[in-house]
Design a binder for these strands. Structure first.
Length: 429
RNA sequence: GUGGGCGUAGCUCAAUUGGCAGAGCGGCUGACUGUGGAUCAGCAGGUUGAGGGAUCGUGCCCCUUCGCCCACCCCA
């Protein structure tokens, strides 16, 4: 092993074949989001530390953010999440924007976490948010973007599921069970941990947090009640809208979904893999009606979610849903370089092909033909052109179809048409 | 931040209790001096992640370090 300088831990090198996957995913995200009327936007990749200090979780700001001091002495942060930037940008144009606003974004984020399966320190996230609407139907529409994405990439409802609950409903239960209001976040955190702990440890933990045995047992009953949603007017409307949107096969009520994060105020949801070796949600989101005001803007209701590229790519790989032909040939045509004397003739014919809209690579220096043909084969070119002394003397070009192995020698004026003909014909052999 | 596993050729991996570092694939060259894929022959390719220690002797044992993987923590 030579001493190649190592990449930064938790980063990912996108070689062309990796980039092809990312670009493909990006295209589907765009197409799905736009079909719902969402507009693409982007925030700066660096923000002031203050922006996150306002409302992001302590863990995220204190322990996981990349913080640096610039040459003016300002403390800046590589963004660990997008929502604060969204709140900031919405607040800045509050008077100018026409609400509700639907925005989507796909970009890089940084968190200094211990790397593991499905988690890197530099990663991409797809954020989809609607600001300025507060109906349960709006929540359903926001979720429909996600479900439609799943359908588009081929992740059927037999593979992934979106669990939904509502913080308002759970808070009402807390109240009903006599749980003091300052314990609600703790109780939510306790519920959020249910799937991650053994039943005994989980019960003991609830006790430790200050919940009484009676409260724990009543909460347990509630968490097992898949019809609990019927007690919520909002969820009732939400599920009707889900039905109308044609995504009910993907969406299911789940009373134990509550999200650990403090700022959710209403509908919350998480997507899970059904046959999961990924033992955590693959994405999450919900309604956060107070966040805009907390960041200094006017109060505006909002709903949204974020999905990471790493876990999604793992899932698509696992189920064989990545397109096979994602690494297309860099060019359809390779023009060989016979010798120095004929080199410029090759350059000229390559220029003609490009003018005709045909992707054409040149072998950049004279070399033995077997080597150049091998190169053409490896890079996936369909056609090779040869201008050697014989062709040059008559103003001709040899055009070979690499798929069939047949070739013809033509006058230069006929080359573009012949190449085009080969490129539209099936790859027979 | 905590715990565990793994680093051998470009890639996938071998190497007996601690005793000459190997194979397949890929690469290059040629068979075939103006034609790719297939076949055959040959060649090149390594500070065994890095640094230190114990040993007559280490890819293998011990320590340190870097990286990767897995789980915990956390999940915006």
């Amino acid at each position: 092993m030579k001493s190649i300088i190592q990449p930064v831990q938790g980063t990912h090198d996108f070689y062309p074949e990796d980039m092809a996957i990312r670009t493909w995913l990006y295209g589907i995200m765009r197409s799905v989001a736009e079909s719902f009327g969402y507009q693409e936007w982007e925030a700066p990749l660096i923000e002031t530390l203050d922006l996150y200090a306002a409302k992001s979780g302590e863990e995220l700001v204190e322990k996981q953010s990349y913080v640096l001091t610039d040459r003016d002495g300002h403390r800046i942060t590589l963004r660990p999440e997008l929502t604060p930037s969204l709140a900031r940008m919405i607040a800045q144009r509050q008077e100018r924007l026409t609400f509700p606003v639907r925005w989507w974004s796909f970009g890089p984020f940084w968190r200094h976490e211990r790397t593991q399966k499905g988690r890197r320190r530099e990663f991409f996230q797809w954020n989809v948010d609607m600001i300025g609407a507060q109906s349960p139907e709006a929540d359903a529409e926001n979720v429909a973007v996600l479900a439609t994405f799943f359908r588009r990439v081929g992740l059927g409802p037999n593979r992934v599921i979106i669990y939904v609950n509502d913080r308002r409903l759970m808070n009402a239960k807390f109240q009903e069970f006599g749980i003091a209001q300052d314990l609600w976040p703790v109780a939510s955190g306790w519920i959020d941990r249910k799937a991650k702990m053994s039943p005994e440890a989980w019960l003991a933990y609830g006790n430790e947090l200050g919940l009484s045995a009676g409260q724990i047992s009543r909460l347990q009953t509630v968490l097992g009640d898949s019809n609990l949603w019927q007690q919520s007017q909002e969820l009732g409307r939400f599920f009707k809208a889900v039905d109308a949107l044609g995504i009910s096969d993907y969406v299911q009520y789940e009373p134990s979904i509550i999200r650990g994060l403090l700022y959710y105020t209403g509908t919350v949801f998480e997507a899970w893999e059904i046959a999961g070796d990924i033992k955590r949600s693959i994405l999450g989101g919900g309604r956060y009606d107070n966040l805009m005001a907390d960041v200094g803007g006017e109060a505006l209701p909002a709903v949204g979610w974020a999905m990471g590229d790493v876990v999604m790519t793992l899932l698509l790989e696992k189920y064989g849903l990545l397109p096979k032909d994602l690494s297309p040939q860099p060019a359809s045509v390779l023009v060989t370089a016979f010798d120095q004397e004929r080199l410029l003739a090759s350059y000229r014919i390559a220029t003609e092909l490009r003018k005709a809209g045909i992707a054409t690579a040149l072998y950049p220096e004279p070399a033995k033909l077997p080597k150049q043909f091998k190169y053409a084969d490896k890079m996936g070119a369909r056609v090779t052109l040869v201008i050697g002394p014989d062709e040059a003397a008559k103003g001709q070009v040899t055009v070979k179809d690499l798929a069939s192995g047949t070739q013809q020698t033509l006058t230069q004026a006929d080359v573009v048409a012949a190449v085009r003909q080969i490129l539209v014909s099936p790859r027979a052999r």
